[in-house]
């Protein structure tokens, strides 16, 4: 695992609050035993008109955002089901960071473990970013996790994230398994002290 201190890329807006994980990856795409083929289902019901089967006019379908690797959204992004299929499908579609007003907790943890930073910005900063991206789809947006700053064009604005997530990303320790396994003695001692194990 390498350290993630900065993420840069083009961005696309998925407007709205409470974008739930059923939206991100409809359950019909979860009939699988690996995460390998999840990209196809990402935001499927948003991207495809259910009545006609044709692509909708959503920004995710807009060729001008084809190279986007950052998602901009609203409040409570990733709420609902705990399915890690949701961040996996986003990651496997080429996205490397999400900025929103706020995130649901389980989604947040799943994304961090994947090495996909989720950062929060104010509604006003996000609206300005979104508007700018719409007009300048090739603009580079950068999230600096050390300085906790986002930048695009000649604008910079502050971003926030829980310190634990930030430190795990910038130290490259966002996949915790190795560290958890180092503590086997302590794990066994904890188990021993619990009456029911």
């Amino acid at each position: 695992m390498s350290a993630i201190t900065k993420v840069s890329g083009k961005a696309v807006t998925v407007a709205g609050n409470d974008i739930d994980t059923d939206r991100i990856i409809p359950a019909k795409f979860m009939k699988c035993v690996t995460f390998d083929d999840l990209a196809e289902g990402m935001f499927y019901d948003v991207k495809v008109n259910p009545n006609t089967g044709e692509l909708t006019e959503h920004p995710l379908n807009d060729p001008k955002h084809a190279e986007a690797s950052i998602i901009i959204s609203g409040e409570n992004f990733g709420c609902g089901s705990s399915r890690e299929h949701a961040p996996q499908s986003i990651y496997r579609s080429g996205f490397r960071a999400i900025i929103a007003e706020s995130f649901a907790e389980i989604f947040y943890g799943n994304s961090t473990t994947l090495g996909m930073p989720c950062v929060c910005g104010s509604a006003a900063d996000l609206a300005a970013l979104s508007e700018y991206i719409d007009e300048n789809p090739t603009a580079e947006v950068t999230f600096d996790l050390e300085a906790l700053q986002a930048s695009y064009g000649d604008v910079t604005f502050p971003i926030t994230m829980p310190e634990s997530a930030r430190s795990s990303l910038i130290s490259g320790k966002f996949d915790p398994l190795a560290e958890l396994m180092e503590n086997m003695d302590k794990i066994e001692a904890t188990a021993e002290a619990l009456p029911y194990i």
């Binding site: 995460f35 705990s82 399915r83 890690e84 299929h85 961040p87 389980i106 943890g109 799943n110 473990t113 994947l114 829980p162 634990s164 996949d175 915790p176 398994l177 958890l180 396994m181 503590n183 086997m184 794990i187 188990a191």
Partner: peptide, 20 residues
């Protein structure tokens, strides 16, 4: 509480997980 699949792996492997 609910967890993601990578945490399912962590719990299987160590009976522990990271939590705030």
């Amino acid at each position: 509480f609910g967890i993601g699949t990578t945490q399912v792996r962590d719990v299987l492997a160590t009976q522990t997980m990271t939590m705030e």
